[in-house]
């Protein structure tokens, strides 16, 4: 198997063209002045869009809001998902497979279906307009994914690791911290990556749970669409919204395709 087969390189090239074309368009527009302004003709290259983002309190705040609930969500999914994944991997109990499957069904429940009752429920307990509310509701689809990925990584670790640690007198929490987490570090990275991106890109819940404040970056972009939309500003904001995701891809690049092995 040679690594540089010409036909395969061609496939990679066509793929790159298809994936990058829309993104190139986005980046190009973000560096153009797209509204008539004094002393700056439409269509001239300029950094004005990026300057406008950092001049706007709303846009800057939205970046922070998104970052807070996404990080909270990742922490929550890993913290709650890791023990559950360990249980699914190491224990046999009645209905274990069914429970894992039921979790996946919730991942597949469309957000639109649940948006109304979630709003009412969260309004009751004071979680509307709060990053905690969004972080919690994103567990609906991220927690099953996290459990599923972590379960497959834990199942790849031999049981002897657990047994020898318990013989050495480790308690379950100290075994988790000292042995299990280091052993499945790539799995934690991959799980964190998927939780991060799915929370970062989600729109439906992020919209209904931010009525008056705490608007995330997605809603800040939506709010830019007005009678006279500055499409360059929209695209600049989009480019900025891609930065954390691209950084995450870079961090997990060598492990991204592992951790989805399915146990029969």
């Amino acid at each position: 198997m040679s690594g540089f087969h010409p036909a395969r390189l061609l496939v990679l090239l066509v793929l790159a063209l298809f994936i990058l074309l829309p993104l190139v368009q986005t980046v190009v527009l973000s560096f153009l002045n797209t509204l008539p302004r004094d002393g700056l003709a439409e269509g001239t290259p300029s950094l004005i869009n990026y300057r406008n983002i950092f001049a706007s309190d709303d846009l800057r705040a939205s970046l922070g809001n998104s970052a807070v609930y996404v990080l909270l969500n990742v922490a929550l999914c890993l913290g709650v998902g890791l023990p559950a994944a360990y249980a699914f991997s190491r224990y046999r109990f009645t209905g274990d497979r069914h429970l894992l499957l039921a979790l996946l069904v919730f991942r597949m429940t469309p957000p639109v279906v649940l948006s109304l009752p979630i709003f009412i429920l969260f309004a009751h307990v004071g979680l509307v307009n709060s990053p905690i509310g969004i972080a919690l509701v994103h567990c609906l689809f991220n927690l099953p994914i996290a459990i599923w990925i972590l379960e497959s990584f834990i199942s790849a670790v031999p049981r002897e690791l657990d047994e020898s640690a318990f013989i050495d007198g480790h308690s379950l929490p100290s075994f988790f911290l000292r042995h299990l987490i280091p052993a499945i570090a790539p799995g934690i990275g991959v799980a964190a990556f998927f939780c991060f991106i799915f929370s970062w890109v989600e729109v439906v819940f992020a919209r209904i749970l931010t009525v008056t404040g705490g608007k995330p970056i997605t809603m800040a972009i939506n709010a830019l669409f007005t009678f006279q939309t500055d499409i360059g500003l929209v695209m600049a904001m989009t480019v900025i919204s891609l930065v954390p995701g691209v950084a995450m891809i870079w961090f997990v690049r060598n492990h991204i395709a592992r951790g989805f092995t399915i146990r029969a």
């Binding site: 994936i19 990058l20 993104l23 991106i197 970062w200 890109v201 989600e202 729109v203 970056i217 997605t218 972009i221 939506n222 989009t238 919204s241 891609l242 954390p244 995701g245 691209v246 995450m248 891809i249």
Partner: peptide, 8 residues
């Protein structure tokens, strides 16, 4: 890459 683009 496209997976990290906000859906809207």
């Amino acid at each position: 890459l496209p997976l990290v683009v906000p859906w809207n």
